[in-house]
Design a protein around this nucleic acid. Sequence first.
DNA 1: TGGGATTATATGGGCGTCAATGGGTATGTG
DNA 2: CACATACCCATTGACGCCCATATAATCCCA
Lengths: 153, 153
Amino acid sequence: MDLFISKYFNKIDKKGRVSLPSSFRNVLPKANRNEIILYKSIKSRSIEGCGVGRLKEIAKRINNLDFFSEDYDDFSTSIFSEIVTTSIDKEGRFLIPEELKLYAGIKTEAAFFGQGHFFQIWETKQGLKNTEDSRRRLLKEKKSLRIMLTQQK
Amino acid sequence: MDLFISKYFNKIDKKGRVSLPSSFRNVLPKANRNEIILYKSIKSRSIEGCGVGRLKEIAKRINNLDFFSEDYDDFSTSIFSEIVTTSIDKEGRFLIPEELKLYAGIKTEAAFFGQGHFFQIWETKQGLKNTEDSRRRLLKEKKSLRIMLTQQK
DNA sequence: TGGGATTATATGGGCGTCAATGGGTATGTG
DNA sequence: CACATACCCATTGACGCCCATATAATCCCA
């Protein structure tokens, strides 16, 4: 399976280490299996993460913008300076930078939510609440989606 | 990772030395790992820097401007004549020329912002403010950021 | 197919290494 | 000689690497 799926709740130890769920590790390309990128979610108080491969893709796109435009700087600043890369140790653990933990309100436990091509890290309670809210919105307001999700192939 | 990523805040000591963040050092080609170039940013009160190898890339970008335009001369002059090369000592530190520090308003701390193929050095407060402003502009006015960040290859 | 044995995963902790920082001295150039 | 800067060494704290354990999952063989 090459998608980030399901949810996991892992402890953050004294040194600040958390295990990246094993199934998430397996999604990373064998080449860069010991590195991921993290950044603040735009839409919620959570951290988003994925393999480094996507970063190179983004770099390429930004590089194609007009170098002397304001847009270039805005993209470049908002993305490159906000993204952090962290390495994963032999046991599959990594460090969440302090700033990102603050942003997401994470202290002693990290809740990992698979999102397909990327994943989110939440403070456990907020993450669970977000899941409920999402689901409620889906069921109440988006009948068409419900159809997509329940329809047989 | 061969890109300048993330942000770092390093102290400038009495002698005027600053550490180039370790992850930035690693972006420099192993050959010229002890030399970088610095120049005033055209668009902001910051210093831009990169490995010497990127000079060619900068030349190409300027060359793509209309040769007979005023812009051409302005960019060409502003950048090429202002470029300085500085060497990095064994501990990974370098000196920011006085003129550049003045231009950016840097005194005792330098804020390094990764920008992909180059990086910027800001006075800490201004740098943080710039990050916020950039992000705000993108979120309010440009849906494209969201697309870049969330869209799959 | 049951149940012990092996492997994997999450978690904890020790310790050496490296990064950031400080300072002292030599070298050099005006 | 004075100032700047290159070179050398020292300190501190963070992080990487290694080893250890407990629980859960998987395997394997009779």
